[in-house]
Structure formats: C-alpha cells, structure tokens
Design a protein around this nucleic acid. Structure first.
Lengths: 223, 223
DNA sequence: GATATATGGATCATAATTGGTTCAGAAAGG
DNA sequence: CCTTTCTGAACCAATTATGATCCATATATC
C-alpha cells in the first residue's frame, strides 16, 4: 500500500523513541522484530529507519544494531509534537479557559472592520449546507474573534488549537456530533456573542463564549 | 446543480489545508477518499485539485499522491515561527489571561505531592543566589502550578511561553529588571499563591497569580 | 582461532495503491 | 431543447509496499 507507510512508521517510531521506550543512547530491537511489531515488511521498516537516520535520530551499524542518538524533549519541536497528541478533553478545557477571556478582550479592542469580518463568517456558517462547510466557517468565526484582540501571540495560540481541532480524530468526532438542530443552536449562540461584541460588552461576550463552548463540550464529549 | 461544485470544493479544500488539517509538507488523502469525503465524484474533485494546483497550493505527483506545497502560513511550523517573534507585551498579556485561570484550576486538582513540588521550587527560588538561578526556579515554580492541572495541553502551552521567556531578548529584559528587592517581592507573592493552593482556594489562587503577574508586568514593561 | 548466530545491507519479482485520462450518460439551468 | 457540469466507470501509468533471498559484518561460543 503506497500510502507512505514508511513516513508514518518513521513518525511513530520517533514518538516511541521520545516517549523513552528505548532511552538514548539505547539499542532498538532488531529490524525483523520491529517490522513485525509495526505489521509491515522489513524493507518498509528500513526505509523508515533511513528517514530517521537522515534526521539524526539513529545511528545504524551493520552487524551490531540500530542505536538512538539524540532526542529532543524540551525544544520547540518537542513541545509541538506533544501538543499534537493532546486529548479532546484537555483541548476542550483549554478552550474554555482561553476563549471567553479572548472574547472579553475582543469586545474592547475590536474595530468596526473586525466586527464586520466576524459577522460575515457568522452568516456564511449559518448558510452552510453540510457539516464540513459549517465547520470551516465556524473555525473562521472563532479565529476572527481572536483577531480582534490585536495580540499576535494569542492569535497564534488559537491557531494552534484550531489545528488540533482539524486533525482527523477530531474531525470524526465533530462529524458524528453534528446535526442540523445543533448547527442552529450554534448559530444562535454565535449571534449572541456577536451581539455582545457589537455592544462592546466584555462581560456579555465572555459569558456568551463560555456558554457556547459549554454547549460544544456537551455535544462533543457528553459532559 | 451544474454550477461550479468544483470551485466550491476547491475553496473548502483550501480552507481545510490552511487550517492545517494536512500540514505542509503533508500529503493529502487519496483522491478517491477525498471525493467520498466531500460527497462528489472523483472527476469533480480532480477539477478542484486542478484549480488549487494552478494557484500553487498543491503539487500532484502521479503514483505518489497530492502534496501541500508552500503555505506555511498556517501550518505548525509557520505558527511556531510567528510565536517566536511575539512581543513582550503580547506575551505578558497572554500570561495574565492564562495563568490566573490555571492557578484556579490547580487549586482544585492538585495532589499533595504536586503542592510539595511547588513548595520545593518556591524555597529554592527564595534561596537562589543570583538572577539566572532565581529565574530558573521561578520558571519551575510557575510550570509546576500548571502541572497540577493535569492537563497535558495546558502544560505544553505554558512550556511554549516559558521558552519564549528564555529567549535572549527576554532574558536581557529580566536581567535589567532584576534586583534583590524585587526578588523578595516575588517570593512573598509566590508564598501567597502557594498558601491559596494549600487552602484549596481557587479564587484566592487566581487573585494571587493575577496580582503577582501585574507586579511582573510593572517591573518588566513599566505599566 | 574457527564456527555459529545475530544483525544490518541489498536486490528482485509481484502485488497493491494512487494519480492521469477518457467516455457515455445523467442532472441542472437557460 | 441545448449547453454546461457532474457522475460513474473503466483503463493506463507511476510509485510504493511486500515477501523472499542472499550478502556483509559483528558478536558469542567452543
């Protein structure tokens, strides 16, 4: 299956290495074992090892074995990789923590143009025909609330969360949880948030975002 | 509806690509899967892909797959780069937004062992002889508050902020702003926060963290 | 030291997957 | 109607994965 199994396995191997399964500087299991472990052909596993070797994670020694060299746990990329593995519950909790505060900040910092952009995203979401289209516009809506805050870092942190929400696992969850009724509820809640922003009402915006996200959590996680 | 389904799909695809669902340099799912995903025929999907290819968003490779090309603007790496360039003011604002809430959450979720670790970091910080040592323990202190929340994602997001604070520009700011008096103030504020955590008092912890961070902002930014 | 075993290195034919192309027919809109 | 667009299917071409086999080197055992 030319589905880039090699790259996929390389990523999984790297993650297992960094999880400390074979602490550096340690030896990996023989290729024949690893291949069986991953359920792939040895040839394919060897390609994955080749990729990791190029990246400097492995040292391969003929007749001796494959050895882990360095591992990065505290660097930016290490953090990002761990962020990618976050659970939906954790993500939802962080959203509940950050987004209401951002909405409050947006209420005071937003320009008229900002609010127009939010309204446009809101309208598009309400008119969206199917679930993927709605989700696309929903994401834009939330992003534009953060845009209002004029805080680059905050925007990018939300971008990070947005990326997580768009990963396949999340997408499946959202697809299962989607219905026309729920979309209508979301639209009403978005409208309430937008109204608070238009009133320049920080507390109202905070509460609107909070109750909206609680609805989302209820629909996605059931609590 | 013979009205440009392809263009519509192209726009949605582009939006999902920009949202990082298949981060560059990443591979898109096979055309047959994507077509089913969007609920359209493979031919139509291919027209959409053609449009995106013309715009330079995709690289299509026979037998291999379709790849997202440039557009690191919204991928993990692009976000990372922009995060690294954040201004001290933005960072301070984000800290003020996140850390008090995290402290409140920590007050309810912390185990005795967690609190012991925080106390240990607090003591070490107070006894630190020079500025780098104090900053180290200060960072550990704050990090351990986040550890209490049992939220991996939240911890890693704080780790990200912590990395920012350790970049050269920040370090210089902190070094200039450091003094024994201010260190003593920080220690008192840390002690107040720790006390609130030990009381399992969420509101107290939130307020203690908030006023501490306001002190830090005053010392670093002057407002 | 000689031999056996374990392990990485390399090659090849075959099968599976994937993008590329074409075509006939259905569906939507003027 | 007529045109455009979408659909569904079949087939081609390129790439990748598989499974097997054999070679090369290092380590253990006697």
């Amino acid at each position: 299956m030319p589905r880039m199994v090699a790259e996929d396995v390389a990523a999984r191997l790297r993650s297992r290495i960094e999880a400390g399964e074979w602490a550096a500087p340690g030896r990996l299991p023989p290729e024949r074992e690893l291949a069986e472990d991953f359920g792939i052909a040895r040839n394919t596993l060897r390609r994955a090892l080749g990729l990791l070797e190029e990246q400097g994670f492995l040292s391969r020694q003929l007749g001796r074995g494959n050895y882990v060299t360095r591992l990065e746990s505290d660097s930016f990329s290490g953090i990002l990789r761990r962020i990618k593995g976050s659970s939906p519950a954790d993500l939802m909790e962080v959203r509940l923590l950050i987004e209401p505060a951002a909405a409050a900040a947006a209420a005071t910092a937003a320009s008229d143009a900002d609010l127009g952009a939010i309204r446009q995203a809101h309208d598009s979401a309400c008119q969206a025909g199917d679930m993927p289209a709605f989700e696309d516009w929903d994401a834009v809506f939330h992003q534009r609330v953060f845009d209002c805050t004029r805080n680059e870092l905050l925007r990018e942190m939300h971008n990070l969360l947005r990326l997580l929400r768009n990963q396949p696992l999340w997408f499946e969850m959202k697809r299962r949880a989607f219905s026309e009724d729920r979309k209508a509820v979301y639209c009403r809640e978005h409208a309430a948030l937008l109204a608070a922003l238009l009133r320049r009402d920080p507390e109202g915006a905070r509460q609107a975002m909070l109750s909206h996200l609680k609805t989302v959590r209820q629909n996605l996680l059931g609590w």
